[in-house]
Amino acid sequence: MTAKSSYKVLPGPEGYLPPAAATMSVMLPDPGEGLVEGEIVPQEQAINKIAEKLLSAKNPTFFPGPLVLWAWKDGVIEKAVAAKELADVVGAKIIPMPDYRPKYPMINPEIEINPNHPNLTIWHNKIDVCVFVGVHCHFANIALKIIRGGTSCYTIALCGEMGHEDAMITLRDVKADTIRKITEAVKEMKAGGVVSG
């Protein structure tokens, strides 16, 4: 058995079958908190860390999921617009995850990502930092583990529910407002001299 307490949620490739972070004693944050590499921190600190990671990335990429891509209920558009704005300010690419189905004969990793083999898209586009937003929790966790197993990508999950231990940084209860806070943090950092890689 792997020692539980020492487990850190860090970029991989972690190997053949990395464990779910929750089974290694990593806990989800409470409201007002975030999770950075397996440690619970105040939300603001996690937001700053996200801004820092995005700005220092060579090829930051947003993976918007169905919950923001499709304007299915009130509030979605506002959140989708906020996420797009953040991606634009960072200079990040957007590669969608429009649904979760396994694709036949195979996906085009250039233009889409799939939770069953997210590593293909990450490898193909040489993505070093990615942001999940609007992906159903179950599928986000499945994908995040596969990414940790097979790639060195730094994962950030902006979750509308309770967050994701399997991401390197996660925020919970994310609304349009929360995303705008990240955008603000990015802008401030930029003004303070941090340049995009």
């Binding site: 918007p64 923001v68 891509l69 499709w70 304007a71 299915w72 979605v76 558009i77 989708a80 617009v81 797009k84 957007i94 590669i95 969608p96 429009p98 085009n108 233009i111 889409e112």
Partner: peptide
């Protein structure tokens, strides 16, 4: 069945 504004051009 509607795509959120701003994402039309990235949708397959």
């Amino acid at each position: 069945f509607k795509i959120s504004p701003g994402y039309e051009d990235v949708m397959p």
